Amino acid sequence: MPNDKKPVKVLSFSPSADGELNRWILFYYGVDFKENRHTLPFFFLFNKLQGGKSLILCRDGDIKLTSVHAVIKHFDAQTAPEFKLIPETLADQMETSWKRYNSELGGAVVKWAYTNLLPYKIVMIRPLTLGSPWIERFFVKHWYNIPKQLIWKSQQLSKATADESLKTIKTVFEEVDHLLADGRTYLYGERLTLADLAFAVSGAPLVLPANYGGDQFGQGPIPTLEEFPLELQAIIRAMRQTPAGEFILRLYAQDRYRSVRDNP
């Protein structure tokens, strides 16, 4: 990847899975980028003013990328075949995996996590505001109910939905358990692909890996295990012990900060 260009500009909502996936993808491709993180409702305002359509807006020069999927395809096209996250021979599998891991698993995790954590203001202020300007952090601290209700209503959250989402999460984790049962290194063999990143990022709130959120060796925009309610801590400990959970922890430990620049 060329690295003599001006840094790519990123607008993101710090705790979103797409924001984290976008960070990982850009780091993997060796792309220098400058990220501006905002909390709610400020992110929605800035995103709309700049023509964004999702929880991530990425600008590479004059090119505007309005989804993390667009970011992947844009930079994958510039990458050597042996390092592509979407190998030509696995294009169909990558599309299927994207839907299963990013859309279905990711959506279920969002509903499960926010339903269970939004009632705890003291836990959620840091994840919702990490990296945001001080005025936005001040706003969330003193008017927390506004971003809370924005998320609650936009995601149509409820206890019943969260319980159903946990069933989906466990089903997808079991599917990955089966894939890994033959000892493969990654979901599609011996090389890292988009499927691995999508699963690891979407499933991260269920196992709380280190290195999450672009803050190497830091906590990032995700609560600690001790901050979770006790009943949820038991779920997280159990998910960490599954092959799929161990896989996420390994990817974050070994691959989160590896780049194509590391290869000769």
Rank of each mutant, 00 (worst) to 15 (best):
S12W: 06
F13P: 07
S14F: 04
S14D: 06
S14E: 06
P15K: 03
P15T: 05
P15G: 08
S16G: 06
A17M: 03
A17T: 04
A17D: 03
D18I: 01
D18V: 05
G19S: 08
E20M: 07
E20F: 02
N22H: 09
N22V: 09
N22Q: 12
N22P: 07
R23E: 05
R23N: 05
L26C: 04
F27S: 01
Y29M: 02
Y29R: 00
G30E: 10
V31S: 07
V31M: 06
V31R: 04
D32V: 07
D32N: 13
F33E: 08
K34I: 10
K34L: 11
N36K: 12
N36M: 11
H38P: 03
T39H: 06
L40E: 12
L40F: 12
L40V: 10
F42W: 13
F42H: 13
F43P: 02
F44I: 14
L45T: 15
L45V: 15
L45Y: 14
N47S: 15
N47I: 01
K48I: 03
K48A: 14
Q50S: 13
Q50C: 10
G51S: 13
S54W: 03
L55I: 13
L55H: 11
I56H: 02
I56L: 07
L57M: 13
C58Y: 06
D60F: 09
D60T: 14
